[in-house]
Design a protein around this nucleic acid. Structure first.
Lengths: 198, 198
DNA sequence: TGTATAAATACGACCGGTCGTTTTTAAATT
DNA sequence: AATTTAAAAACGACCGGTCGTATTTATACA
C-alpha cells in the first residue's frame, strides 16, 4: 500500500477515534496514548500528521460536525417534505441516536465550548466555524419553512435558529446529568412544535 | 487560632479557589497542586478535608451555586418590584458580571455538565441537585409573575423555566467562543422580553 | 488541677504512572 | 545517493493519591 494512502487512512482513523473519545471523556480527560492505542498508530506518526494535540482537537471538531451538516442538508433537500417537517425529522433522528448511546457524550461542540472554548485559541476558531456552518444551515431551513407558511414570520429565521441551537445545547447538558431524553424532547416540542409555528 | 476554625477557613478558601479555577480551566484541566499553591494549603490537608478530587469537585459545585440562588431569591422577595422585572434585573446583573470577566468561564454548572456530567457519578449527583435547586427557584418566580399577570398562562412555569435555563446555558457557550455578550442578551430578550410575556 | 495517654488532624516528601512533546533512528520514496 | 516521511525511544513536567511522622486537641487518671 502506498504510503500516502496509508497516511490518509491513519489520519481518518485517528479523527474518528478522536471524535468518540473527546466526546466521551473530554479534551483534557483524554490522553493521546489512549487514542493511539485504540487505533494502533505510533505516537511519532501522530505528531507527523497533526503537530500537536491542540491542532488535532481543532481538526476533530470539523470532522465531527461534517456529517451532521450533510444529514440536515439532505433532509432539507427532500422535495416531498416541507422544511419544518424535515427539521423535525432530523432532530427526531438525533434523539434516537442519543438514546442509543444512553445519553452519554451528547454534543462534542457543546462539550468543548464549555471545556476549552475560552482557553484554546485554535480550538475556539474551529468551534466558531463549526457552529456557524451549522447555524446558517438551520437558519436557511427555517427561512424556507417561513416561505412555505409553516413557521411564523414575525421572528427572524436567524433569531429562531439561535434560540433552537442554544436550547438544544442546554437540553443536551441536562440530558447528560439526568440520563433521560426528556429534556431534548421537551426542547423540540416547545420550539418546533409550538413557538415557531405559524 | 483554634484548629477547627482554621480548618473551616482552609476549606472555604479551597472551595472559593476551586470555583475560580474549575470554571476557568475545567475539571481535568486544573491540577490540585495549582489550587493548593494558590491558597497555600498542603496537599495532605486537602485530602484530610475532601478525600478526593472528585468529592472536592462535588462540593465546589454546591459552593458555586449557593450565591446565585441567594441572589435570585433576594430579588424575587423585593416586594416593590414584580417578579418578571426581578428576574430580568437578575439576569442583567449576571450579564454585567460576565462582561466584567470578559466572557471567560461562563457557568461552572454548564461547563462541568459537559465535561464530567456523564463520567463522574458523584459530580453528576451534585450537578443534578444544584441545577434542580436553581430550576425550582426560577420556576417559582415565573409562577409568581403569572399570578401577577405579566407572564402568559398558557405555558407552564416549569416549561418556561426549563426553556430559559437551557437557552441560557447554550447562549453562555456561544458567548465563550464568540467573546461577546450578544448571545446572552439575545437569549434574555427573546424569552423574558417577548415569548414569556402575557 | 496537673499530668499522662489516646485520638485526631496537619503536613510535605514521595509514590508509580501518565502527560504532551522532542529528538533520534529507521525506512521508504524520489 | 539525497530527501522526505514513519516510527521508536527518550524527555522532563506533572498527575492524583499515599505515606509515616509531627503536632495539636481531647480524654483519663492522679
Amino acid at each position: 500500500m502506498p504510503k500516502s494512502i496509508k497516511k490518509e487512512i491513519n489520519r481518518e482513523n485517528l479523527l474518528n477515534q478522536g471524535v468518540t473519545m473527546l466526546m466521551g471523556q473530554g479534551y483534557h480527560g483524554t490522553g493521546l496514548q489512549e487514542i493511539l492505542d485504540a487505533v494502533n498508530i505510533p505516537k511519532g506518526s501522530f505528531y507527523n500528521y497533526f503537530g500537536s494535540k491542540e491542532n488535532f482537537g481543532a481538526e476533530v471538531i470539523q470532522h465531527y460536525i461534517d456529517p451532521f451538516i450533510t444529514q440536515l442538508a439532505a433532509h432539507l433537500q427532500q422535495s416531498e417534505t416541507d422544511a419544518l417537517s424535515a427539521i423535525q425529522l432530523y432532530f427526531t433522528e438525533l434523539i434516537a441516536e442519543l438514546e442509543k448511546n444512553q445519553f452519554k457524550g451528547g454534543c462534542l461542540l457543546g462539550n468543548l465550548m464549555g471545556e476549552i472554548g475560552d482557553t484554546s485559541e485554535v480550538c475556539q476558531k474551529s468551534l466558531q466555524s463549526a457552529v456557524n456552518r451549522y447555524r446558517k444551515l438551520l437558519q436557511s431551513g427555517l427561512a424556507k419553512a417561513q416561505q412555505q407558511g409553516t413557521v411564523r414570520l414575525d421572528k427572524s429565521a436567524e433569531d429562531m435558529a439561535d434560540l433552537l441551537l442554544n436550547s438544544w445545547q442546554g437540553a443536551l447538558l441536562r440530558m447528560k446529568i439526568e440520563k433521560s431524553s426528556a429534556p431534548v424532547k421537551q426542547c423540540c416540542n416547545q420550539l418546533l412544535g409550538e413557538f415557531f409555528r405559524a
